[in-house]
């Protein structure tokens, strides 16, 4: 039973999967809120740079966008890792993927937050 062909590997257990499901559902919830907020605050759409900057002055918008970013990036990367797993990767490959995807996730989230804060500050200074 200790034969690696038969024995189970740990790694994606309950919590990683649970995170994928919960972030997936949160993405849906935020998308619904997004459509409602857009309906009331940006009825004509966000068709110019100025529109976007103005839109971000409503405090709910940056909060919503950052939450959406965190949830959607986590969900996507956990999901992509799952697809890689289904391709029978070697231990080394999945190890590299774990590090790569973690790094991509952190970079994407930091970059996204920076971008949101940049837009918010442009609105405040004008």
């Amino acid at each position: 039973m200790n034969d690696s062909r038969y024995g189970p590997k740990t790694g994606e257990s309950t919590w990683l999967w649970f995170t994928k499901i919960v972030t997936g559902l949160l993405v849906i919830v935020i998308l619904i809120i997004h459509f409602i907020v857009n309906h009331f605050t940006a009825q004509n759409g966000l068709l110019t740079y100025a529109d976007v900057v103005k839109y971000y002055q409503n405090p709910i918008v940056p909060i919503m966008e950052i939450a959406f970013l965190v949830f959607v990036v986590s969900h996507a990367l956990i999901g992509l890792r799952g697809i890689v797993l289904d391709l029978k990767p070697t231990r080394a490959v999945i190890g590299a993927v774990n590090w790569l995807f973690s790094a991509v996730g952190v970079v994407a989230i930091v970059y996204g937050i920076w971008l949101v804060l940049t837009i918010v500050s442009r609105g405040a200074s004008s």
Partner: peptide, 14 residues
């Protein structure tokens, strides 16, 4: 429990 709650267990079903 350990066997089914693993990378190769129930979470792999799509």
């Amino acid at each position: 429990l350990k066997l089914v709650d693993s990378e190769d267990g129930v979470w792999r079903c799509h």
